[in-house]
Nucleic acid binder design. Sequence first.
DNA 1: CGGATAATAT
DNA 2: TATATTATCC
Length: 469
Amino acid sequence: MSNSAGSGSVSDEFPAGLRVLVVDDDPVCLMIIEKMLKICNYQATVCNKARIGLALLRENKNGFDIVLSDVHMPDMDGFKLLEHIGLEMDLPVIMMSADDNQSLAMKGLTHGACYYMIKPIRIDMLRNIWQHVYRRKKKKLNGSDPLTSPDDVNHHQKVQVPEDAYYASSENGAHKWKNAKRRKDYEDESDERESSSKKPRVVWTPELHRRFVEAFQHIGIDKAVPKNILELMNVPGLTRENIASHLQASSDRESAINLQDLLHFHEQRLNESQFMGTMDPGYDLRALSVRGQLPGQSLAAVLGGSSFSRSQHLLHGSSTNMESRQLLRLQQPYDHHSFTGVNSQVYMPMAGHGQGQSQGQGQGQGQSQHVFPNGIGSNVSGGRTVPSFNLLNQIRPDSGSQNMTFSDLLAHSSPKKTEPATSFAVVDETGTQDDLLTAILEPPQEGFGQVEDEFGFDGYDLDDLPGSP
DNA sequence: CGGATAATAT
DNA sequence: TATATTATCC
């Protein structure tokens, strides 16, 4: 294999030869998957012991592109394996399980799995796995931009959190942020000159953030207000406002993340039902809308809860699987270089509207009628409300642990934060935020968000696969 | 304090 | 330009 140098041409051989490591204690399953992978033209390596799988991975760090692992295994829990892989190498891991338990799936996803497949695995599901590899590779490229100028500009550094690193703490990084916003009490000096910047914006490096979290946890959710946090953090130059702003941003991010998790599920359902495909390949803007509430709160509440009441009637029978039905139309006739189902962004509009007043800036343009929850998108520029938020950065780590997280923060400190969203939408990576906005704002079409007969699917294989026609 | 929006940075 | 992050305002 080997690709030619990065010319623009799409190497039509990329997906082929993908090196997949499959770990599953069930020999039958293992064999089947292996077979299917081969049919897909992938290079499969199988093993029935998690430990062995891990050993294989360690042996040649670059020997595989992606890992497919079962969840339940005698010698080592699939999550454990996942953990090790996440810690030691940068490989996309897909979890598999016959158990469609939502929380289990959630656990897999939050622990770093890039996907969670419900067995039985169908070949259609395997065809697409290359996307995960591709996506990760792409992300890495974007992240490691060569902008790292060694200059000692005391500005700020580009602290891109490598997707797999989360908040790896670097002990001696304690002073890095200091120079980033050295400000002291001297207000007279500098301001304009001073070597570089004029306005030292605080840069929340992972280290700084860590300190923040530490303080937050130490204080306890009830008293964790900016003032207290500031005090405990004891960082020269940092102001209460800085904390407040960060606090706000953090909680917003948290809810955004939950949203993203939700998205994962949708993606799965999508992929899983895509075999019946054959829609016209005309559009690639997948917009998905959910009626009902989408409390920016906890994902658990959303998934397990009674949200989505609107589509309730669509669910006949098994109530185990939540919103799987309100999916929409998928396309992607093939497993080719289309990206449907992978990169996506989610936005949610607030229930109400019309707050766009702003302080009489000179914008001149009209205000958007829709308001987005702060952080998840609230930037009015050029008269438009532009949604935005960063899904990828600053997601705090330690899933498993029961440390206090910002979810707690969210739940406690802002019960009435913003109104629950009435819908949300998703677009794939070709969609811009604006597209999304459009999707959201679009008048609730008939059948939007509901199962559409016209498209030939009224059920999802997820449940009826096991044999219940 | 908490939340929204303006301002910057990338 | 569009989006992300932080500063300000109320």
